[in-house]
Write a protein that binds this DNA or RNA. Structure first.
Lengths: 346, 346
DNA sequence: GATTAGCACTCGCAACTCGAGAGTGCTAAC
DNA sequence: GTTAGCACTCTCGAGTTGCGAGTGCTAATC
């Protein structure tokens, strides 16, 4: 397909995409030449535009307007005209520095990743916290708060921490709690929640209550993990003309709120490791047909992974978006790898 | 001030407020009579409207439109025409039931409270998690994850749990970690972060690292607690005509995102215990001048408290909003009181 | 044969006009 | 104090128009 385009046609397509991404207005033959000092006449550009339209890379919003890239226009641009964009070194340093600031709080790192993405691309950043496909128990603690109130803290394989209060029938001392947790952890370490559920019936009293609560907590987490998607940059993204209508903004909010988005994106990223790009109609979900999505999976290994990416109008700065997603994904993966396997950060 | 209005004038004001809240359109003398079967003529209503406008309870958007309540119109309505609205019992049962579902996970309860408020009022719900004015250490645990990586879990007075990873120079066994935490907790229990910071220099090795991290964690939490505000219902609120313009929606998002909102509302609720209402210009912050805010402080005692309320256009259903805020605040307070003082839930 | 100048044509957009409808304030009568 | 009558005001939506940016086609040019 790339062979079909002359060098000039490729150049024109590239300029149109870039100009349109920047200004958001359909670009005409005359203004293109004015802005970029091309040494051909408007008529020539028009002829080439005609060819590009023929090939479905461009389209008219209406007869007398300029041209606008189609989804396949963007696709061609991303694939053949973009090269391999990189985050500038100064930017890299800035980002690394910010991650060093939050040190090793996982929750903060996820938020920071979203903030960095949103800031760099001007679009909506999406980050899901790292989770294991099947979470298992790594550790738990029982802490006596009051007579019959116990705080349960659960650490799972992925390093995430969950908490819940436990009501017990009769007062229990901290020593008894510690004894119980030391004993139980031996039995349930590295088990996932269905296995723990089975264990419940084999115990009684405090132990049974604790196991019950742990399995509930893990089940809930597993279910919710489909819904857990942190986003950032919405308010800035709303400035874009594509989102300037209230109903679009509202639709966007609903998309982000419900867990639906994550369960749509998840399967799309299972296959490959690198950054994936879905432009408009390339998206599988109808709800995303008018957006561009740039997304990748990050993580320490195949086991503990999360999603990270950008959602915006199809008219988005693909170069910066792709490079930033790729870079931030690397940073987060390094950080996780350090936590999970002890490898040093780069 | 209430003596100045005749019974009919009060009735008319009440109807205008209710009608306008419901429809969002300025209400005229004729349509008011049509809709509510008043046994007076439009002219009479107009005369009364004139009086109400004189008293600044009503205003014209423009010469030939109907009347719209002013901020003081709403204020009069809330204070003299509203009675003491209550949440219907069926609704109460439904709400209690939902809270029982999430059992005793604090974070979930906060989210649920916001969801309930948003759902019941159709506006934006705001809930800040319960925090102590000055947080102190209640408990902490050190968990060995890997050779030189330790997970620190910190429980503060308010019952909130924080976590951080710790890098140590030389490998430490779980026993050594347990020993260390058992020893240190005696020293720093019930201390707040400045006190702990002082302790750091008195220790060395692992202990110093742990204390350092704990104080950092607490300092950060205290600072962030100003920014921690959970909201819900935005997408539905955007359907309201007041928010239908993109720039308003954007401004609203920015208001919610930054921590500014909480630090504005905080001081306003320090004084009293009951639900407080700020209508439009009554708000201290300029950013809130065009909104109505209904807010209250909930909590187990004066010490561990949070904020809970509603933000919407001044045109909001004050009756339902006030009663729901009051009720949900009660439910959350009961729940907290149970956690903190061992009192049974009602 | 590719490129360009010239030109008639198209169409969205913003400004403008205008009539209808809802509502008002005033006055005089009840 | 209340009401009928009436002239007046102002918004809103529909229809109209002129402008400008941009196009496609044709014929001339390099």
């Amino acid at each position: 397909m790339s062979a079909e385009l002359s060098a000039r046609q490729r150049r024109i397509l590239k300029l149109i995409v870039q100009d349109y991404v920047r200004t958001g207005r359909a670009v005409g033959s005359k203004s293109l030449i004015d802005r970029y000092k091309l040494d051909v006449s408007p008529a020539t550009v028009r002829n080439d535009m005609g060819v590009l339209e023929e090939l479905a890379f461009l389209q008219h919003p209406h007869t007398s307007a300029g041209r606008v890239p189609t989804d396949s226009g963007y696709r061609y641009y991303v694939e053949h005209l973009l090269g391999n964009p990189r985050v500038p070194v100064s930017e890299q340093i800035r980002i690394r520095h910010q991650f060093r600031q939050v040190e090793m709080q996982l929750a903060s790192s996820v938020k920071l990743a979203a903030a960095v993405l949103a800031e760099a691309t001007g679009n909506i950043a999406l980050v899901s916290p790292p989770r294991s496909v099947r979470e298992t128990v790594r550790h738990f603690e029982l802490i006596s708060l009051r007579d019959r109130l116990v705080l349960l803290i659960l650490v799972t394989q992925s390093g995430s921490v969950h908490e819940a209060f436990l009501n017990v029938d009769t007062p229990v001392s901290q020593d008894a709690l510690s004894e119980s947790s030391n004993r139980l952890i031996q039995e349930i370490r590295d088990l996932s929640y269905p296995d723990i559920e089975q264990q419940v019936s084999l115990h009684e009293g405090l132990d049974a209550i604790v196991l019950e609560q742990i399995s509930t907590l893990m089940r809930r987490t597993e279910q919710e993990s489909t819904a857990e998607l942190h986003s950032d940059g919405l308010e800035r993204a709303l400035r874009q003309p594509e989102f300037s209508q209230a109903d679009v903004a509202q639709q966007l909010l609903e998309l982000l709120r419900g867990g639906a988005l994550l369960s749509v994106l998840m399967p799309q990223t299972r296959q490959r490791d690198d950054v994936q790009i879905f432009i408009g109609s390339e998206n599988i979900s109808d709800d995303l047909r008018s957006y561009g999505v740039i997304i990748t999976r990050y993580g320490a290994s195949n086991d503990v992974t999360g999603l990270l990416g950008i959602l915006g109008p199809t008219r988005m700065p693909y170069d910066r978006s792709i490079s930033t997603v790729r870079y931030v994904s690397g940073v987060l993966s390094d950080l996780l790898r350090h936590v999970h396997t002890g490898e040093p950060e780069h």
